[in-house]
């Protein structure tokens, strides 16, 4: 089965639907509007159980990255990178990295997140 087979998890559906529409989304508390980590089912600040999805600006900074030197799936021939990005909205998002596997990277570097053909990826801004 392709690694891109759609998730059947209802909580994450709005995230994937956003990508299909070319939009990167993040979560906020429906009551207090503060950004919530991906995966939170309740607000960590006000205990409200309602969450809402909002479009993210697509800007952030690089927290961490890894370089796969060994392949695990045909869709990802090595070498390739995966990045952890903190969106400017204040939450962390895992993203495929667009750029050479040997390019020097720096923690904290500004990055852009783009969505194309339903796939999100990050690259240096």
């Amino acid at each position: 089965m392709s690694v891109f087979a759609p998730s059947t998890d209802t909580w994450s559906q709005p995230f994937y639907e956003g990508l299909a529409q070319g939009e990167l989304r993040y979560c906020v508390c429906a009551a207090c509007s503060r950004a919530l980590p991906y995966g939170a089912r309740v607000c960590r600040y006000c205990d409200s159980a309602g969450i809402a999805w909002r479009p993210a600006a697509g800007a952030g900074r690089l927290c961490a990255w890894v370089t796969y030197r060994r392949g695990f799936a045909p869709e990802f021939p090595p070498p390739y990178r995966v990045a952890m990005v903190e969106l400017q909205e204040g939450v962390r998002l895992l993203l495929p990295w667009q750029g050479g596997a040997e390019d020097p990277l720096r923690q904290g570097a500004p990055v852009r997140v783009t969505v194309e053909s339903g796939r999100a990826s990050a690259h240096l801004a």
Partner: peptide
């Protein structure tokens, strides 16, 4: 680790190693 079900695979983050 992403909080989004199925997302690690779509990012290529396989194994506990990654």
């Amino acid at each position: 680790i992403s909080g989004i079900e199925g997302w690690e695979k779509q990012c290529g983050l396989f194994g506990a190693t990654g």
